[in-house]
Computed example of a mutant assay.
Amino acid sequence: MAVDVETEIVIDRPRAEVAAFCADPDNATRWYRNITAVEWVTAPPLAAGSRLAFVASFLGRRLSYTYEVREHVPGERFVMSTQEGPFPMRTTYTWEDADAETGTGTLMRLRNDGEPSGFAGVAAPMMARAMRSANRKDLALLKQVLEG
């Protein structure tokens, strides 16, 4: 069973600022509650093909995985994916002006999708609920960090 979780939030900061902060792997531990470390596997700067090693905790388990950047359109879209472990996943960030007329604020969407296998596949509905909850908390923290 596939997992596809999308959450969104409006942040009262310019889109370029929000996107630059979120797409910088060195900021991940500031707004993702479950990510404890990020290490560059390939040398900066960030570009398609960049690889990043993450350490996180999720559902009480320590996870280590490597994301590869698939797409990076500054200020618009950032996509990375991992093929490792029982839960290959893609993470997509998109940003757009929250108020198209005035260009103020940013609507950010965070999407995690993947095709878990083995036990992870059986637990997919529970994982999706946990991911949605975690993503909402992460986006709320991001809003606090950037607007604070």
Rank of each mutant, 00 (worst) to 15 (best):
E68S: 09
P86V: 09
E84W: 09
F87M: 12
T91S: 14
E68Q: 14
M89N: 06
E68T: 12
F87H: 14
E96D: 05
D99C: 10
H72D: 00
A100T: 15
W95A: 00
T104V: 04
R90A: 06
E71I: 11
M89E: 07
E76I: 02
E68L: 05
T82Y: 10
D97Y: 07
T94D: 05
G75Y: 02
F87Y: 15
V79N: 02
T102F: 15
T92I: 13
R90D: 06
R77P: 02
T92K: 07
P86W: 08
G75W: 01
P88F: 00
T102K: 13
M80T: 10
Q83H: 15
Y93V: 00
P74W: 11
E76C: 05
Q83P: 12
Q83V: 08
H72Q: 01
Y67V: 10
S81G: 06
V79W: 06
F87L: 12
R77T: 02
T104K: 10
E101T: 12
F78S: 04
G103L: 08
T82M: 01
T91A: 10
Q83Y: 14
H72R: 01
R70P: 06
W95D: 02
D99Y: 11
D97H: 13
H72S: 01
T92P: 15
P86H: 09
R90K: 13
Q83C: 04
P86G: 04
G103N: 10
H72C: 00
V73L: 14
S81N: 00
T104Q: 09
E76Q: 14
V73H: 11
V73Q: 07
D97V: 10
E76M: 10
P88H: 01
V79K: 03
G75M: 03
R77Q: 01
